[in-house]
């Protein structure tokens, strides 16, 4: 008569238990991802306006056409501006980050403390950090102008505003590149340098043929992360300069915010812009993932032997 503990399990088959566990996640995904995605696709094809109480009119690809063909080319300019920002910011972060990591790799007194201090900017909230920089950049009473003994105007209508964003971003995210570079550098086996030393390789040779190629996968990973993150940059530009159109800090997300929340126009066009941004992000992410697969395949570490 003893049926044991196995009996109740037959109440539900293994696959139905599995399905039951997946269901909530699936429901959430549909409710908060798939539905909004489809709904916004629908909205982007209409002149839907949440404020005026009239039924939205279907306009087909009209919103997209307006965006692409707008006389001031504001959309394309925001895209190229964002691209340039990614190039400059990530480039600087990588160069400075890797250089600092090279210095931090040597052992010296107080290295731990020094590294910790260097990492602080990364821990701050971008909004808070943006506010600080806003005061530093202020044309009339900012600390930066006082230091430089100049009267630089970092206002959004000036090209300098773009560089203000670059400076703030580089300051904030270089520690991230330091961290990843250090991880890459520390993974290089010491015996490779010793072998090179016995082989009479010079310092540049060691750097070029051991340090650089072996740290590269990790640094590339950092570049990829930072590029994707910078591409959707919003907070720093918003805090520094607000969401006005036609400024030197009107990046894609800023433009999207300005169009979506800035006026009483239809929501159709901003939604269409959001869709363009989504497509661009997806394209970028796909490229990046392809590339990471490639790196993983080629850059497999030296087959592990006894250390």
């Amino acid at each position: 008569m003893n049926q044991g503990r196995g009996a109740p399990a037959r109440f539900m088959s293994e696959s139905s238990v599995r399905n039951l566990c997946i269901m909530p996640a699936l429901a959430l995904l549909i409710a908060f991802n798939v539905f909004p995605l489809l709904a916004s696709l629908g909205i982007s094809l209409t002149d839907f306006n949440p404020i005026i109480d009239t039924a939205p009119r279907f306009v087909g690809m009209g919103n997209y056409r307006d965006l692409v063909e707008s006389p001031r080319q504001e959309v394309w300019r925001s895209f190229s501006r964002t691209g340039f920002l990614v190039l400059v910011t990530v480039g600087l972060e990588t160069l400075i980050g890797f250089a600092v990591a090279l210095l931090l790799r040597r052992s010296f007194r107080g290295r731990g403390l020094f590294t910790a201090i260097l990492l602080i900017p990364m821990m701050l909230s971008p909004a808070v950090m943006g506010s600080f920089w806003r005061y530093l950049f202020n044309a009339d009473y900012g600390a930066l102008n006082w230091f430089l003994d100049a009267r630089l105007n970092w206002d959004g209508s000036r090209a300098l505003a773009f560089w203000a964003v670059v400076i703030a971003e580089v300051w904030m995210w270089t520690p991230f590149m330091i961290l990843l570079s250090l991880a890459g550098l520390n993974a290089i086996p010491e015996t490779l340098y010793e072998a090179a030393e016995v082989d009479r390789a010079g310092a540049w040779f060691r750097f070029r043929h051991i340090t650089l190629p072996l740290a590269a996968p990790m640094v590339l990973l950092g570049i990829v992360f930072r590029a994707m993150d910078t591409f959707r940059l919003f907070d720093t530009a918003m805090v520094l300069n607000g969401n006005l159109e036609g400024q030197h800090t009107t990046f894609v997300s800023v433009l999207l915010h300005a169009r979506g929340f800035g006026g009483s126009r239809s929501l159709g066009e901003p939604t269409a812009l959001a869709y363009l941004l989504l497509i661009a992000s997806l394209a970028l992410a796909t490229l990046v993932l392809r590339y990471l697969d490639h790196v993983r395949g080629v850059g497999a570490p030296e087959r592990g032997r006894r250390p």
Binding site: P189, T191, L192, E194, A195, A196, E197, V198, D199, R200, A201, H209, I210, P213, L214, G299, P301, E302, R305, R306, P307
Partner: peptide, 19 residues
């Protein structure tokens, strides 16, 4: 220094330059 001694060393873990 090592590079001044004209000796060659083979390491236990091979230490080939992987790239």
């Amino acid at each position: 220094p090592p590079h001044g001694r004209d000796m060659a060393m083979v390491f236990q873990n091979f230490s080939l330059y992987p790239r």
